[in-house]
């Protein structure tokens, strides 16, 4: 699937963390604001909160026939369970992006790169823990380049409840900024476990 500039991503965590919304923002950024294509397939249990929840996202310059992701290039892990379950499936030379207070990374395959962010803490500093997924989206946009930062920011504004745009954009920018600093830090930021 490398032709047509296609990327396969899995985002996983607990129900209630905003896993699906995070995937939706990436897809919306790509489709509506970059005129590309995206699919998002979601899986979750019958519980409203607390159960495991994941989204399979494919982004491409071309229409996407097959929306499932067996070996994602990127895993965004927002819970320990998500890491344990999905990290082994990462494609060779894949990228792990994780919430570093919720995920203890161990035994990572040597071909994989990883970037961690304390997204929950950053969200708590904004006094709204629930925006951790938006912090994560900003971080993902900055460290992966999957979706342009501007497109992703517009998708955030387009996706959140009216009246919360400022809070969410702030959360997005914090995540983005953290990611940029980590990358600028070079190898010191990478491979961190």
């Amino acid at each position: 699937m490398s032709e047509a500039n296609t990327s396969e991503i899995r985002i996983a965590g607990f129900g209630g963390q905003g896993v699906i919304l995070a995937g939706m923002i990436l897809g919306k950024g790509a489709t509506i604001f970059e005129n590309r294509h995206a699919t998002l397939v979601q899986s979750f249990g019958p519980e409203a909160r607390g159960g495991s929840c994941s989204a399979q996202v494919v982004l491409s310059d071309q229409p996407i026939a097959y929306p499932y992701v067996a070996r994602p290039r990127i895993l965004v892990a927002m819970s320990q369970e998500a890491f344990e379950r999905f990290a082994p499936d990462l494609a060779p030379n894949g990228l792990l992006v994780y919430e570093q207070d919720l995920v203890k990374v161990h035994d990572l395959r040597p071909d994989l790169r990883s970037f961690g962010i304390p997204a929950t803490r950053i969200a708590e500093e904004l006094r709204r823990r629930m925006v951790l997924n938006i912090v994560m989206v900003g971080f993902v946009a900055a460290v992966t380049g999957l979706v342009g930062v501007e497109a992703a920011r517009k998708a955030v504004v387009d996706s959140v409840p009216k009246g919360t745009e400022h809070l969410n954009v702030t959360a997005f920018d914090k995540g983005c900024e953290y990611g940029r600093r980590l990358i600028a830090g070079g190898p010191a930021g990478e491979g961190k476990a």
């Binding site: 995937g23 939706m24 897809g27 489709t31 509506i32 294509h37 995206a38 699919t39 998002l40 397939v41 979601q42 996407i64 929306p67």
Partner: peptide, 9 residues
């Protein structure tokens, strides 16, 4: 369920 819950352009 897949088509119902799948997001796409």
């Amino acid at each position: 369920e897949c088509i119902g819950h799948m997001l796409e352009k």
